[in-house]
Design a protein around this nucleic acid. Structure first.
Length: 851
RNA sequence: GCCGGGGUGGCGAAACGGCAAACGCGAUGGUCUCAAACACCAUUGAGGGCAACCUCUUGAGGGUUCGAUUCCCUCCCCCGGCACCA
């Protein structure tokens, strides 16, 4: 097989050889420092941020998919005269390094750093305009010391606290992540042991404080789905908190308060039982002796379930009666108390009043356990209609209360408000709001993360490490002993320290921080990565942030994008920044999946390496292909099918630029003008095509529609190809079209554009100037304008003809032209149109006729 | 299960409620070549017709509309997220 075929061997020019062009320009750009941003000058700033990668080892095609269109945007903005800052770094802490370390007995830091070294090298082959002077590596003590510093400030400000929380625990490997728990019987991925729950003291950030503020998106532009997902994640519910009391029984004195949260206080008279979460603190006290065995077993089973399983509405409801009753505060009725796993301990008060007539879950439960179902809300006028075997949950304006004592007959909403107000007067209830959002648990029982700067002293309790002692460094030597248990818990030199207050022997916190902490502020650090008396230089940060545009994978739509917003608000509240939001605009691309349609990962073995493609076609082709494949926000399974077409396009641009006069021997019409076109018309057609392409491609760049942008450049090159070798090829209009084509191509395929640009300059005897420093061209509206246009004509919605009218024809003129069409008269067959609809100002005409 | 996104030719896809399938791949035929590759030109949703043209077609089924890939309802399938993967 011959490898050195020349696609242009018949032409008189040298062939397009990306392998020789790309490294040369990459070296040149670096040498000139083109992409180092002067951060002292925030004028015309454009901070473009892309999500930094986890250093898993190799850059795969997914990294290219995230980065290269972002780089095209950076170059596009620079061509608009903006001072663009495009930094990059590495999200260097996390589980995979520990897994590699345990498996292969290597140091997580060595593993991570050598991966970073490799990825830096691979990044350079993209031709991306990263400012490497600003690089940040989160595993560097220079970075993570500020995580510790932030934590101490948040602690001082009352934004951090310690509380108990359950983790999935393996007796051999310690705390497990969700992905490390396998199978429906929940076993440890490493050793197969049965996973249990264990309650640990852990650190939280009080982000629920910001729940309402986080629902305000007025200063941040998210794609609609992200805004909706975050809103649902925060999950604000308004309703009432109602206090029930336990009734006295043989085993229980009664009088304990059971507080419930409900969004439907209007249905209080329909409460026919109560349900406690298995985690509820009163479960044990309320359980009757004869029920204890069953309740204990049920609570244990519930612990083994994931929250996702417990919340499934499809699963059959389970639960156990405690053998105790509660008293409904509104009517004194005694109702039985159950424990059931569909009620969660962490939401609301961990207890609900169950109203089976008006809640589907309660309805199912009531049916299962043959509990009474009492309807208390009905559409006005249908008070007597029977419940047809289902819960009536619809909520509309025109409902009234029924079976609700003194409140019967009131509109439901008003009745609910009155019930709450009356209960409040008796100290038995109040209006309340709850959120699905929980405080941020940042403790991780792992080695490879930021150590939490706390020292535990028997005398003084949890003592913050003094700021001047930061960073608390991770020890460099680490002994995993083939186990997932955090090795810091066995590292005596790390553990043993004197108490900062009294000097007594004390022990360090061994938990480290969630890596979402690292990723919650890294773009501020990029602006002054070596600043060493604060996390960042405040002046530079105020000059350059909020980030203008953030790009990254849609899989981060909620967690990362929400944690970072929370972090920014916490920083603001301790006086570090002025801004409310970290970024102005966010765009989420879709995810590139492996060829098997699954998420790319080393363990699945479906990771796609771009290096071979880059070697074969060049970085420009790979970049352009990734943009051309489909809409950027969509992603999808990876397939290199079709990359040859993009490469062919670049070859055609090459040929158009360097050899306009060549006549293709394979084209019978080569060198001629299209039928019916004279030279003047041909020149006008070339200009029109070029400027229309400029108009449309510019809009596509702005909207991140890179796939159609590339398609439009292809169309322009196809149009020019038609004129190649003809009398108008190489003329002024041709030359302008090629110039525009190269400028439009420059952000996406920077090397070939630079190469062809420099050759044009040389040919014209001008001094070299980078195409990437050129200004984005202006559309010449006069070139784009058309004198006539074609109007599709439908009869009953089916296109039957097209008529050509002057571009400025009015509605009456269009109608005359339409009715004058012989074809249309034939289709009408003597019938008179009942209606004539001109859509979009005469862009299309539809004649409606009756048969 | 819940929240969000998607489903259009053989394939990747395009289409402010207004000409479905732009652009590209693949395929077929051709030009060039001793030949092949490369390159170039043409055709290419399905069905019918000698043709002009006609009929059908955007996951399935309903609805709104003069007109629906686009809006609404029900359902099916795929992808992302669900708080210790990042």
């Amino acid at each position: 097989m011959t490898q050195t075929q020349d696609p242009n061997q018949r032409t008189r020019i040298e062939r397009y050889d990306p392998a020789s062009i790309e490294p040369r320009w990459q070296a040149r750009w670096e040498e000139l420092g083109t992409y180092r941003t002067d951060l002292t000058k925030p004028r015309d700033r454009y901070y473009l941020l892309t999500m930094y990668p986890y250093p898993s080892g190799d850059l795969h095609i997914g990294h290219w998919y995230i980065v290269t269109p972002t780089d095209a945007l950076a170059r596009f903005r620079r061509m608009h005269g903006l001072n663009v800052f495009l930094p990059i770094g590495f999200d260097a802490f996390g589980l995979p390094a520990e897994n590699a370390a345990i498996r292969n007995n290597i140091n997580p830091r060595d593993w991570t750093m050598s991966n970073i070294e490799n990825m830096r090298r691979q990044f350079r082959t993209m031709g991306a305009t990263f400012d490497w002077d600003s690089e940040v590596v989160t595993a560097d003590p220079e970075y993570y010391r500020w995580n510790q510093w932030f934590f101490l400030q948040f602690l001082k400000a009352g934004l951090a606290y310690r509380a108990k929380s359950a983790v999935d625990w393996c007796p051999n490997d310690g705390t497990l992540a969700r992905e490390q728990v396998e199978g429906t019987d929940r076993r440890c991925w490493r050793c197969g042991a049965k996973v249990e729950k264990r309650e640990l003291d852990q650190w939280y950030l009080r982000v629920t404080k910001y729940a309402d503020e986080l629902l305000d998106f007025s200063e941040i532009h998210f794609p609609d789905p992200v805004r909706i997902m975050q809103t649902n994640w925060i999950g604000r519910s308004e309703g009432g908190e109602i206090t029930f009391e336990t009734a006295a029984s043989g085993h229980h004195a009664g009088g304990e308060e059971l507080r419930v949260f409900t969004t439907r206080p209007d249905t209080l008279f329909g409460a026919t039982f109560m349900v406690l979460a298995p985690e509820h603190p009163l479960v044990s006290a309320l359980t009757a002796p004869e029920r204890r065995a069953e309740v204990t077993a049920y609570v244990a089973r519930a612990e083994a379930q994931t929250e996702i399983e417990r919340l499934s509405t499809e699963r059959e409801k389970t639960g156990v009666a405690l053998g105790a009753d509660a008293v409904n505060p509104v009517n004194g009725e005694r109702i039985p108390i159950f424990v059931a796993d569909y009620v969660l301990g962490g939401y609301g008060t961990g207890a609900i009043m169950a109203v089976p007539a008006h809640d589907e879950r309660d309805f199912e439960f009531a049916q299962r356990f043959s509990l009474p179902i009492r309807r208390v809300v009905a559409p006005a006028g249908e008070e007597d209609v029977d419940l047809a075997g289902a819960a009536y949950v619809a909520h509309s304006e025109h409902e009234v209360l029924v079976n609700s004592g003194a409140y019967t007959g009131l509109p439901a909403d008003e009745g609910g408000r009155r019930i709450v107000a009356d209960l409040e007067a008796r100290g038995k209830g109040k209006a309340a709001v709850t959120y699905r959002l929980r405080d941020w648990l940042i403790s991780r029982q792992r080695y490879w993360g930021t150590p939490i700067p706390i020292i535990y002293c028997d005398t003084h309790g949890a003592v913050p490490v003094p700021e001047e002692d930061l960073p608390v460094r991770l020890p460099d030597t680490v002994d995993y002993r083939s186990s997932g248990v955090n090795p810091l818990t066995r590292d005596e030199t790390f553990l043993n320290v004197p108490c900062p207050i009294g000097g007594e022997p004390a022990r360090r916190e061994t938990d480290t921080m969630d890596t979402f902490v690292d990723s919650s502020w890294y773009w501020y650090r990029y602006l002054s990565p070596h600043h060493d008396d604060a996390p960042f230089d405040g002046d530079v940060v105020e000059g350059w942030t909020p980030v203008e545009q953030y790009t990254g994978g849609a899989e981060h739509a909620v967690m990362h994008l929400l944690y970072a917003r929370e972090w920014t608000k916490m920083m603001r509240d301790i006086g570090l920044v002025q801004q409310n939001e970290p970024w102005r605009r966010v765009f989420n691309q879709g995810q590139i999946l492996g060829a098997d349609g699954e998420r790319m990962s080393k363990s699945r073995g479906n990771v796609q390496d771009p290096d071979d493609l880059v070697k074969k076609y060049g970085a420009d082709t790979v970049r352009l292909f990734l943009m051309f494949m489909g809409p950027w926000d969509q992603g999808g399974p990876w397939s290199p099918t079709g990359i040859g077409g993009v490469h062919r396009f670049l070859n055609r641009v090459w040929a158009l630029t360097l050899d306009p006069h060549y006549r293709e021997p394979g084209d019978p019409e080569a060198g001629t003008l299209p039928d019916g076109q004279d030279e003047t018309a041909a020149r006008a057609a070339i200009r029109a095509a070029a400027h229309r392409t400029l108009r449309d491609a510019t809009a596509d760049y702005e909207a991140f529609h890179f796939n159609t942008m590339v398609a439009k450049l292809m169309e322009l090159s196809n149009a020019l190809f038609r004129y190649r070798g003809s009398p108008v090829a190489g003329g002024a209009e041709w030359d302008e079209a090629v110039r525009l084509l190269l400028l439009m191509l420059a952000p996406a395929a920077p090397h070939i554009a630079e190469e062809l640009w420099s050759r044009r300059l040389t040919a014209a005897g001008e001094t070299w100037r980078s195409i990437h420093a050129e200004r984005w061209p202006e559309v010449d509206q006069s070139a784009v304008a058309e004198s006539t246009r074609e109007v599709p004509v439908q009869v009953n919605g089916k296109v039957r003809d097209r008529v050509v009218v002057p571009a400025n024809a009015d509605a009456a003129a269009i109608e005359r032209a339409v009715l004058a069409s012989a074809r249309i008269q034939q289709v009408l067959a003597g019938r008179t149109p009942e209606r004539i609809i001109q859509a979009g100002g005469g862009r299309l005409v539809n004649l409606v006729v009756r048969d």
